[in-house]
Nucleic acid binder design. Structure first.
Length: 570
RNA sequence: GCCCCCGUAGUUCAAUGGAUAGAACAGGAGACUUCUAAGCUCUUGAUCCAGGUUCGAUUCCUGGCAGGGGCACCA
């Protein structure tokens, strides 16, 4: 049981004693540390029920709590209009420090979803099309949610939904077939060169489709062959290039720190979805002008959408329906989260509304996390990258910036470190905002590497690592000294549990970001005010190291939740 | 026209209906014969407008204004 749960229970008990049972109240860390370690509005919330003024209720509550003799409480007092502030004892923080050292990478885990199965779908690529900045946003949020949900104790299954059928792909295949492409089957040729070739084919195929009317029927024929999985040369080539694309996708997301347990392909979802739609024509869907449509109830204010085109092809909505079906049939999750671009929200709402009439749990257990779009401000980025920036372009741009800044630094960055820093800078700027918000990616500020930034967090981690190294060289090991007054750093470190909890319940990585910035600021302030490793005072040094190391463990765990690496040197 | 999302310092972002709205960048000032200056200390500066609900509203409701997205055969 965490201290927060303990206090919550004690407060509920006290309220009951005062005659205010089942009043909901908050118990949180005040913004101002000077207000205490916890604060509650319990008195304000129950004043009305008790028909007393809040201060009066607060005083009574404080008395009740004192009677309960909670060992960890240093002081409890009433403040402002009727808030009750709690301050924890120094020995509580000593115990906490011990716990952090004991639990290490497990410190902060919550267990609220222990035994649950959670599916998280994200980063869904359009195979044959390049991975662009939108996919990167999706990936940063999705991967963070995967990690946050793992911290909830759930069995998390990350999956992705690659788009592997469609006219665009047929265009690319058509173009490949016009050219010499034996090297695509040559294992000694690099994947990059193959992808570059396929990318060019994609563009060429698109041009041909628009400019040469005679190619249209050929491309449509290839499209049909792929849809029907016919055993033709085009389909064989498609299967091979699809494999290359999946491989490339895996490399790309691996660089960003993601791995998927499995894929559900758009092609299979289309087939499953189509079956469901056809089975429910009449009771859920209806035919109109040769197409199959879904007309939501008027009260939902949702638009009518086409599920099967008049040509008999499943639309995106039908594929999403198939996707839902496959997810629940295959995994039977307790919760199924999906990360998509915010502009899909209305479509998703319609699909889920229709799905609720087929299997109500498909709606009830689904969570949609939309992400916004990234726009670019400032000349630096827009001049180097035209149009929709590709993930690799953005990474290379940021990487160049990192390398520029690494010049002349004492600890020269390795290539691996530079990549980790560049990714941290990008992920931070995505994850600091609420998912769903559009992001203005301004390299002048987003990538300042100063203040609130991914590199700032990493720098703090490396700084602590460096201190620990220095101390180890002097034979000083971290050791908490009993009786030392708890520092602000320890008080902030302790708040990690609550942050994890709200990140889990709200699907909100930004809470972790905000918290880590505060943790690092507090540490750096501590660092500036105290000499941590001091040969002449080994006992104090050991104590401060213990406090710093606990913060470092929490920082590393928090960065882990964001999918950001915690380098030892930078 | 209808529906959804959004509007917070000069800028980029935070804030389960709670205390003095929190950071960073930019601007101004400063410390360091000390462990990583991608750092630290101090400082200037904000809730789009008008109503309403509430002990209390950036948050909830209504109406404006401004931006983004969606509205049947693309995804």
């Amino acid at each position: 049981m965490t201290i927060r749960q303990k206090l919550h229970t004690a407060l509920a008990e006290s309220l009951k004693n005062l005659g205010a049972e089942n009043v909901s109240f908050s118990l949180e860390h005040p913004t101002e540390l000077s207000h205490g370690d916890f604060a509650t509005n319990a008195a304000l919330a129950s004043a009305k029920v008790l028909a007393k003024n809040p201060r009066e209720v607060a005083d009574a509550l404080v008395q009740e709590l004192k009677n309960q003799n909670i060992a960890e409480l240093e002081s409890v007092h009433v403040a402002g209009p009727g808030f009750i502030n709690f301050k924890l004892t120094d020995s509580y923080f000593q115990e906490l420090n011990k716990t952090v050292f004991l639990e290490q990478e497990n410190f902060g885990k919550s267990g609220v979803h222990l035994g649950k199965k959670i599916l998280v779908e994200h980063s869904s690529p359009n195979l044959f099309k390049p991975f662009h900045i939108g996919h990167m946003m999706n990936n940063a949020i999705g991967e963070s949610l995967v990690r946050i949900m793992k911290f909830s104790g759930a069995n998390v299954i990350p999956i992705s939904f690659p788009s592997d059928v469609g006219l665009g792909i047929a265009k690319a295949i058509w173009s490949v077939m016009q050219q010499e492409h034996a090297f695509l089957y040559d294992d000694s040729a690099s994947l990059e060169s193959k992808m570059k070739f396929l990318g060019e084919c994609y563009a060429a195929g698109t041009r041909a489709f628009e400019d040469n009317p005679e190619t249209v029927s050929e491309i449509r024929k290839i499209n049909e062959e792929i849809y029907r999985a016919e055993n033709t040369p085009a389909f064989e080539l498609y299967l091979h290039t699809k494999k290359l694309n999946v491989h490339y996708f895996e490399n790309t997301v691996a660089r960003l720190g993601s791995h998927f347990d499995s894929y559900i392909f758009e092609s299979e979802a289309g087939i499953v979805g189509e079956k469901i739609i056809r089975e429910h024509i009449g009771n859920v869907f209806k035919e109109s002008e040769g197409a199959v449509i879904y007309v939501p109830e008027e009260s939902t204010h949702l638009p009518t959408l086409v599920f099967m085109t008049s040509e008999g092809h499943p639309t995106y909505e039908t594929k999403d329906m198939g996707l839902l079906s496959i997810k629940f049939d295959r995994y039977n999750p307790d919760l199924s989260a999906i990360v998509t671009d915010a502009h899909q929200v209305p479509h998703f709402d319609v699909v889920v509304d229709a799905a609720s009439k087929i299997h109500s749990e498909w709606k009830e257990k689904s969570v949609h996390v939309p992400h916004g779009r990234m726009s670019f401000k400032g000349q630096k980025m827009s001049s180097r990258l035209g149009g929709v920036p590709l993930a690799t372009d953005v990474l290379e741009t940021v990487l160049a910036e990192v390398e520029e800044r690494s010049k002349g630094r004492e600890n020269t960055s390795t290539a691996e470190n530079a990549d980790a820093i560049a990714i941290a800078a990008i992920k931070f700027s995505i994850l600091r905002t609420k998912p769903g918000q559009n992001i203005n990616f301004d390299p002048e500020t987003s990538l300042s590497f100063e203040g609130d930034s991914g590199p700032y967090l990493q720098y703090t981690h490396a700084r602590i690592a460096s201190l620990l190294d220095k101390a180890a060289g002097l034979g000083i090991a971290p050791a908490y000294k009993a009786g030392e007054p708890a520092t602000d750093l320890e008080r902030i470190t302790m708040q990690f549990h609550s942050v994890v909890e709200s990140a889990i319940s709200e699907f909100a990585p930004q809470h972790v970001v905000t918290y880590l910035v505060e943790l690092c600021r507090t540490f750096n302030s501590f660092y500036g005010a105290n000499k941590i490793v001091d040969e002449s005072d080994q006992e104090t040094s050991a104590h401060r190291l213990a406090v710093a190391k606990a913060a470092q463990i929490v920082l590393k765990n928090g960065l882990g939740l964001l999918g950001i690496k915690a380098p030892e040197r930078m």
